[in-house]
């Protein structure tokens, strides 16, 4: 019984930890003079094709400077974060986004790793359930041996063995 319970709770904890670690989204004030920080908050999520795999906010090339100025101009015009990202992805292709949108073929990017993980988990669980039933008796006896009082003896046993 205990085994079932603990397995369930481990699975529950694992499920809980599967809740994405989302950072709180940056709320943008629609002011007339956007600050550098507001520009950076959006640039961080974009990649310019000129300097691959460096986020736009950390890139020093002239191209990236111009891109950031464009973001600033769009913010000044009152565009929202989503609209600006959409503009950039329309203008330069979806590779400027830090991650492709979850649609069409790109669903595969998102769904493959978790499904493989689940398959792996299933395989491992089956490995165990094959042997689970015959274990019950063994379980009782071993657990008695594995008594806290025996800990000292075990340490000593190991200790002698290694000497």
């Amino acid at each position: 019984m205990e085994i079932k319970w603990i397995t369930k709770s481990i699975l529950l904890v694992m499920l809980l930890t599967c809740i994405p670690f989302n950072k709180t989204p940056n709320v943008l004030a629609q002011d007339i003079n956007p600050t550098d920080d507001e520009v950076n908050a959006i640039s961080k999520q974009l990649y310019c094709p000129v300097c691959e795999s460096i986020p736009l906010d950390a890139c020093g090339t002239q191209a990236c400077i111009q891109w950031r100025d464009t973001i600033r101009a769009k913010l000044t015009d009152g565009w929202s974060e989503e609209e600006i990202k959409q503009y950039f992805s329309d203008q330069y292709g979806i590779r400027v986004l830090a991650e492709p949108p979850v649609d069409g073929f790109n669903k595969l990017l998102w769904y493959l790793p978790p499904s493989l993980f689940l398959i792996g988990a299933l395989l491992v669980t089956r490995l165990l359930s094959n042997t689970k039933n015959k274990l019950h008796v063994q379980h009782e006896t071993t657990s008695n041996i594995e008594n806290a009082n025996h800990y000292v003896e075990r340490i000593e046993h190991d200790f002698k063995k290694w000497q």
């Binding site: 694992m14 930890t17 599967c18 809740i19 994405p20 670690f21 989302n22 999520q45 990649y47 094709p49 691959e52 795999s53 986020p55 292709g93 979806i94 590779r95 400027v96 986004l97 830090a98 991650e99 492709p100 790109n106 990017l109 998102w110 790793p113 978790p114």
Partner: peptide, 16 residues
Amino acid sequence: QKVTVGPPFYERTTGP
């Protein structure tokens, strides 16, 4: 189509 797979993907898929 060229795509970028950036930090958010890895953080979300491996974090848990």
